[in-house]
Write a protein that binds this DNA or RNA. Structure first.
Length: 574
DNA sequence: GCCGTTTTCGGCCCGACTGTTTTCAGTCG
């Protein structure tokens, strides 16, 4: 069992215990445990193998959960969970994924109507059986039917950040244009620059709250209004994206911004800390618990300062150790877009790109880069018109020509060479030898099992020709999951062979993920951030790589292409 | 079930909105 599987079981256990109305703190303990496992970069199996006692060092993992993890890793199941499932059907848990249905309602429907699944629930609602239950009515019944329809229509629940940001911008403009002197700030996972977004949260400071609410729900792209209150409203856009807006007084801007930026886990940890210090934090400010005296909240910095911390960048607020660092004053200085000097992965018309070498180079210069590597596909990637040895040599001459012709940016000769099924590279050594930059990537046989896939990539690394492993897990957000690879082994091999791993900034890749970036940072593995552009416009996607890098705690020094070209080349030619 | 600068026991984040109530439970973030 892998980390995510065990996390899912802990979360299921929490749901079941909730339906059974057990001790809410015990339930939270399982939830917290699940979150810890989700955010963990190291494989639990590895930790157990090394020393099961180390599980106890993980936040929220005590004697009990540690034992369950050991059981899961060694036997492939958790007997406590199996036992629970004999009492409550697994499909009942799906009910709680319907908006407006929590554990109480799920339990009510199950007990009174024998509803065990979403299908059962739909049937009961259509038959008018729900409205007569205690606490229910006609309106609730209608809402549930609507929520079931929404749930089904909403394809794959989360939206990629790059699809969401344009909507955020439009909404912020819309709100700002309606009123004078209000501050409109995107918060939530958008502000944390998470790779996928569940809904948009927008904070408005100042202004007439009820007027702002009235204006907001009339936004031109509203499909339906979920809730409209005095200070808080939620709408669903035509594309299925939910937007929450909250209005707050200007004096509480900082505490509200902190609160609505989250993450939830970070907030819980901060509030817990405040509590231990005799303080109470809400969206309205920081207060002394005893006297109720307000001690801050106008700015975010005030909130952090009140609990003895320096200001934590939003991208780090996931309760992955950032609070401990802030306490010691040791927060990293996160990488910024302006640090990026090179872009080492892009395609031209020679393979599957839309522009010429020169056009790409000039656009990259405009985007602020000082050097680029042109890395077209090799011949195995036929769908992308990959180049064979002869074509590649010709292409390299073209690159040389452009390099001589233009100023202000250095153009390196590169290739994105396919890592074949057996771990061999798709071009002859004699050609690879002449390259400045070799990116090795997987484009086929994604379904290989983990051992074989890991061996395949390790073998490619060990040829000595690969400088960078491109999009190392092959995932496409919302489309294709990562292929199975032992990331520990891959990173260890990369480090000992002086090979860098790519953080591919293509917005639906972001591969490596934030968690793997942090793992690379911890392990001292070199990284590069590249756009994998197929057109000049895509060179601007570097910013998405920066977002993910910042979420992975990366600093300038961890990323090779923040260095000047000469220094970068020197490192490559170790 | 977890955890400890008040505690190995007794706490555990906090508030808005809705629909059903006739003062509040459930859900959500």
């Amino acid at each position: 069992m892998e980390n995510a599987d065990i996390a899912k079981i802990f979360s299921d256990i929490a749901d079941i215990l909730e339906i059974r109305e057990e001790n809410p703190f015990r339930i939270r303990a399982y939830r917290n445990g699940a979150l810890t496992l989700e955010n963990l970069s190291e494989r639990l199996a590895k930790i157990v193998e090394r020393d099961p006692k180390q599980l106890r060092e993980l936040p929220g993992i005590g004697e009990d959960l540690a034992a369950k993890i050991v059981e899961a890793v060694t036997t492939g199941k958790i007997s406590f969970y199996e036992k629970l499932l004999t009492q409550i059907p697994r499909t009942l848990l799906d009910l709680m994924r319907i908006q407006g249905i929590g554990p109480r309602k799920a339990r009510l429907f199950y007990k009174k109507l024998k509803v065990e699944s979403i299908e059962d629930l739909e049937e009961a609602a259509k038959a008018g059986k729900l409205q007569n239950l205690p606490g229910m009515g006609k309106k609730s019944e209608r809402k549930i039917l609507q929520a079931i329809a929404d749930f089904r229509g909403r394809d794959s629940k989360r939206f990629s950040l790059f699809r969401v940001l344009p909507h955020v911008e439009a909404l912020v403009d819309y709100l700002k244009n309606g009123f004078k002197g209000i501050e409109v700030t995107p918060s939530g996972s958008v502000r944390r620059r998470k790779e996928t977004i569940g809904d948009i949260d927008i904070l408005v400071a100042g202004g007439n709250a009820s007027k702002i609410m009235g204006h907001f729900v009339q936004y031109r792209e509203v499909k339906n209004v979920l809730a409209k209150g005095e200070t808080k409203s939620s709408i669903v856009l035509n594309n299925g994206l939910q937007v929450d807006v909250r209005v707050i007084g200007k004096g509480s801007h900082g505490s509200a911004l902190h609160y609505f930026t989250g993450s939830k886990e970070h907030n819980v940890a901060i509030r817990d800390r405040a509590k231990r210090m005799g303080l109470k934090i809400s969206e309205y400010g920081v207060f002394r618990e005893k006297t109720g005296k307000r001690v801050g909240g106008k700015t975010e910095a005030e909130v952090f300062k009140a609990v003895g911390l320096s200001w934590i960048p939003p991208e780090m607020r996931e309760n992955r150790g950032e609070i401990e660092l802030a306490e010691k004053g040791e927060l990293p200085k996160l990488i910024e877009l302006s640090d990026m000097q090179g872009d080492l992965h892009m395609h031209t018309q020679a393979s599957d790109g839309s522009h010429s070498i020169e056009e790409m180079a000039l656009a990259a210069k405009k985007a602020g880069r000082k050097y680029v590597a042109i890395t077209d596909h090799s011949k195995a990637v036929t769908v992308a018109h990959g180049l064979d040895e002869k074509q590649m040599l010709q292409h390299m001459k073209e690159i040389d020509k452009v390099n001589e012709k233009i100023d202000g940016i250095e153009v390196l000769k590169g290739v994105e060479v396919d890592i074949l099924k057996e771990g061999l590279l798709d071009l002859e050594d004699a050609v690879l030898e002449k390259m400045d930059v070799v990116v090795g990537s997987i484009h086929s046989h994604f379904g290989m099992e983990e051992k074989a896939m890991t061996k395949r990539i390790l073998q490619a690394i060990e040829t000595g020709f690969v400088d960078i492993v491109g999009h190392p897990t092959g995932r496409l957000l919302g489309e294709r999951s990562a292929y199975a690879v032992d990331m520990e082994k891959l990173m260890d091999a990369a480090r000992s062979n002086h090979v860098a791993l790519e953080l591919n900034a293509y917005p639906n890749r972001l591969d490596l993920s934030d968690i793997y970036c942090k793992m690379a940072r911890d392990k001292g593995v070199w990284l590069v951030i590249s756009t994998d552009s197929h057109s000049t416009a895509q060179l601007e996607n570097m910013i998405y790589g920066i977002y993910t890098a910042r979420r992975g705690w990366l600093e300038k020094e961890h990323v090779l292409n923040t260095r000047p070209c000469a220094e970068f080349k020197k490192i490559l030619h170790r």
